[in-house]
Design a protein around this nucleic acid. Structure first.
Lengths: 259, 259
DNA sequence: TCAATAGTGTCTCTTAGACAATATCGC
DNA sequence: GCGATATTGTCTAAGAGACACTATTGA
């Protein structure tokens, strides 16, 4: 989105296009080699970062809005997006780093104090988890930086986004305890250690490989292939794929791979 | 709330008091003797019922708004209120039973088509579960009926409130599977069958009294008293109380009383 | 031979779940 | 004695969790 489109969309048209007082924030978790990251962006002229977010068009549902925002800002279609919580307090979007003056300076437009963008916003939080490398961070006129941050080493965040990320992480972990995870995340063929390490990274706890594998075998959720992966100077691990039928069944009925 | 207050609050002041495009809906479940009910209300001149709901004041958080709305409409303080999901689609509040014409007729005011009350609303759903008899349904000028309905026998509902109730019920059941329930609901002293029947009613499944009791004893979450309850021409059951310390611990850490 | 990682089997203990007979109470 | 409800124990099978050695690979 360039400057003129931005001005027309948010400053001039504003609430004739978008709902007032409600927003969407997407917590986009990225996984890659034992690291869990969050995608954050930073508007120009600001030293605080924030989540991918946006507003709800009058023609779309909150879920469609979340998907559109994710698509616009990461290029990702068909993300697994999960609504986890709404956040709303009068103070949550008051922040000396986000002011009408800043927006005036950037856009060259006169922005009033009571402009809708600076009103009280209830935000609906969604999260998703994706393979790191699938994401093409999109920057534009207003957002001039967009990058991954380790969840243990976040930069200063705007508004209550630290809380939002925290709650999203809780929700993601809760999901791991009750449903399988990994289908959209791991490559088509993956090794058992890769699968286990994914869980260990998200849950931040070590899992016994023998017990974990035993359980997987019993459930039947993964299939061993007659191929091995070359991992250099070590014993080559077998490759596996998901048994999609059983995986989807487990998504439906719930399944505790760890407890 | 009388007619003049209603008109001033919602028609005249409107969005200078309240957030636009966001609302709260409380699903108030009531339990009483093996029955699970929902509290619904009906505006005058309408044949559809709906949930207790309202709008968010600019001075309060969504949680405070939910509590205030519950208090105003049921007289209950200190309810256990749990946010479970947000609902938002452009169509969800379009309903031929809820129109500017209806509101004009009731209030005697001219209500425009684009009045904020008829806009697209994203609603934040909260649920609670309470003892049936604690609730004092409050009716007013606009709401002229308020009563309990069996969850299996609901009247025609406004908007998407059937869906909202459905999701609230799912969330309530999910909670039963992961946390203890009953402290705010059962009397100070209760019998084991009362406790079990509460679970059976919510989950709609029969539980084996021997296994259920065995588990409760192991967890230690309830204490048997040296008293029995007189239930007439039957063997008198022992009375129990909760071990509050362990109960609160279980609320914190999670506890599957049923699986 | 070494360093690094993958792969595998057994034992114990806890728990879930199935199951039915006896006790108590008021009438 | 009858009808209704409460109370109680045992067995089996599945699963969780603890635990350590061997195999493979490339350098």
């Amino acid at each position: 989105m360039d400057k003129n489109a931005f001005i027309k969309d948010f400053i001039i048209d504003g609430t004739s296009n978008y709902l007032r007082n409600v927003s969407i924030d997407n917590v986009i978790f990225g996984y890659h080699e034992k690291e869990l990251k969050v995608l954050l962006q930073k508007p120009q002229d600001m030293s605080k970062w924030h989540l991918q977010g946006g507003y709800i068009k009058r023609s779309e549902s909150i879920f469609e809005a979340a998907k559109r925002i994710a698509r616009e800002q990461t290029g990702l279609e068909d993300l697994f997006l999960k609504q986890f919580k709404a956040f709303g307090t009068p103070q949550r979007t008051k922040d000396p780093y986000f002011t009408p003056q800043l927006l005036s300076r950037i856009t060259g437009q006169k922005i009033e104090e009571d402009h809708w963008l600076f009103d009280y916003f209830v935000t609906i939080g969604f999260y998703t988890l994706t393979e790191y490398s699938r994401v093409k961070p999109v920057s534009g006129f207003y957002m001039d930086e967009c990058q991954w941050w380790d969840i243990h080493d976040l930069p200063p965040l705007l508004f209550d986004h630290e809380l939002v990320i925290d709650e999203a992480l809780k929700a993601l972990r809760m999901r791991c305890y009750n449903y399988p995870i990994g289908l959209e995340l791991l490559p088509e063929k993956f090794t058992l250690p890769e699968f286990r390490v994914l869980y260990e990274t998200i849950l931040e706890e070590r899992l016994d490989s023998r017990n974990f594998e035993k359980k997987l075998k019993r459930i039947g959720i993964i299939k061993r292939l007659n191929e091995k992966k070359d991992i250099g100077p070590h014993r080559a691990p077998y490759l596996y794929t998901f048994n999609k039928e059983l995986y989807l069944k487990a998504l439906d009925e719930g399944l505790a791979l760890v407890s």
